[in-house]
Amino acid sequence: MNPYIVKRVERRRRPSFMRSAWILLNWKARLFLLGVATLLYLMISCLLTVTSLDAGNLASKNGFVEPIVQKTATGTKIGLSSFTGVMMHSESKKRRKSAKISWCKQLGMRPEPGPVVALASFPGSGNTWLRYLLQQATGILTGSIYRDFALLKNGFPAENIANGSVLVVKTHEYKNKAKEGYDKAILLVRDPFSSVVAEFNRRSGGHIGHASISKFRQDNGKMWKNFVDSKGKEWEEMNLDWSTNFSKPLLIVFYSDLVSRTREELSKILEFLEVPFTPQDIFCTLQNKEGIYRRSKSVSKTNNLFDSVLTTYLTNKQTKVFNVLKHIQEMSAKSGRKSKHG
């Protein structure tokens, strides 16, 4: 036989390195690798699904949100050129003429770096809405220690920026070193019942969507009860940690006050941030205060989610935390009055 042909036949029969390695693995190792690959696939799929839900919900609620060039309240347009590499701008002319976010001021970073201010809250406490209000009132972008692609595409191009070039930095972290590196902090607190439901909704329906009632009833309600149990504990720990262990200037803001007395609370926050503002800034913000970042009320499908055991559990935690927070507020107010008269 021709030696050249023999060599070609031998080369064909020689197994590849990957194939040889796979053959050498026993069945347990193969099963383990397949399991890891399947788990990674499911995790990535879930992440992409929630991000798509967020982007879709935000876009549908506001017609279409143009990420790079957005309208201001006066009708002029601004460009966020620093982020064109991240954002996408390939929509049709028809969509560009649809409703967009109306910003009161041109958005941008601080002219000069300022203090690094944490906007700390338990998930589901209105952090994104407060960021929206602050951007409306000041024109200064807000940042985050996270990189939420749905927010990145819809009004928060400074996501993942956590330094003094942004007005505040969103964080849900606590304990250990979570509070290090901040010069000031705003602690936004919402009652645990609303916070837990909002976080459950976010995990199933994105930032402004809702979990289906079947999600709450899954596994005969056991999954929901476990979620309330674990998140109720985290809600307590997070709010107590920031309120009692952060040694630098701290402003406590209750979400219910921000909703019912938006003008007063927003003015107080801006004074704490030492950012100049005018009555016109507040007026324009109030005119556009809903934006696209507040979850619409669900039509009574989430009524009676908390049985007597869960209600007692969360009520006890709320009473404990709110008593501590209100005491801190009172002490801070007395200290402020003394310094003024001092």
Rank of each mutant, 00 (worst) to 15 (best):
A21Q: 11
L25T: 04
N26H: 11
A29T: 07
F32R: 08
L33E: 03
M43I: 13
S45L: 15
T49L: 14
A55D: 14
N57S: 15
K61Y: 15
K71E: 00
T72D: 03
K77D: 01
I78M: 15
K94M: 02
R95E: 06
R96G: 10
A99M: 04
K100V: 10
L119H: 04
A120W: 03
G124Y: 09
L130E: 01
T138M: 01
S144V: 05
A150H: 15
L151N: 14
L152R: 12
L152I: 02
F156C: 07
A158S: 10
N160E: 05
S165H: 03
K184L: 03
A185C: 08
S194L: 08
S195D: 01
V196M: 02
E199I: 07
G205I: 09
S212E: 14
D219G: 02
M223G: 03
W224K: 06
S247G: 02
S247W: 04
R263V: 10
S267A: 15
F272Y: 09
L273W: 00
L273V: 08
T278W: 12
P279M: 11
P279K: 05
L286T: 04
Q287I: 05
S296H: 13
S298Y: 11
N304H: 09
L305W: 07
L310C: 02
Y313V: 04
N323E: 07
V324W: 04
H327L: 13
K334R: 06
S335M: 08
K338M: 11
S339W: 01
